[in-house]
């Protein structure tokens, strides 16, 4: 299982990559693995919406499970990953790359600091899995 060191992680198993004042968000390798093959993604928020930490911004479905995606940071939703429409498997195959879900303009970059780093998250996952 992959835990790229340059990313930050939430307890809800989302990852965040900071690019300037923007954040790219997706599901972690652990999350996609426990969910199984992703078959459908429904965005609850549209580009232009303002989202707060903890808002449900999307639902990701596999055949036998539904997982809500909680925004790990707040700000203006800039973009959702439309390439996933019909290619949902990218969330499984490339969770930290082509499988990204949202791009947000950070309203408070300090929110990122509150998230876990890779090694803390790895330990968090190991505890959950046991």
């Amino acid at each position: 299982m992959q835990f790229p060191p340059e990313l930050r992680y939430s307890q809800e198993h989302e990852w965040v990559r900071v690019e300037g004042d923007e954040a790219v968000i997706g599901l972690t390798d652990f999350a996609q693995h426990s969910l199984g093959d992703v078959v459908y993604i429904e965005y609850r928020s549209q580009p232009g919406d303002h989202v707060a930490v903890g808002d449900v911004v999307a639902e990701v479905e596999s055949v036998k499970a539904v997982s809500e995606v909680f925004s790990p940071v707040g700000g203006e939703l800039l973009d959702t990953n439309e390439d996933l429409d019909g290619a949902e498997e990218l969330v499984n195959q490339d969770p930290y790359g082509g499988g990204w879900l949202l791009r947000i303009r950070l309203s408070d970059p300090a929110q990122v600091d509150a998230l876990m780093d890779a090694s803390t998250y790895q330990a968090f996952v190991a505890e959950q899995d046991s």
Partner: peptide, 8 residues
Amino acid sequence: DEVGAARF
């Protein structure tokens, strides 16, 4: 293939 059935 239940994944294919749900995806398409």
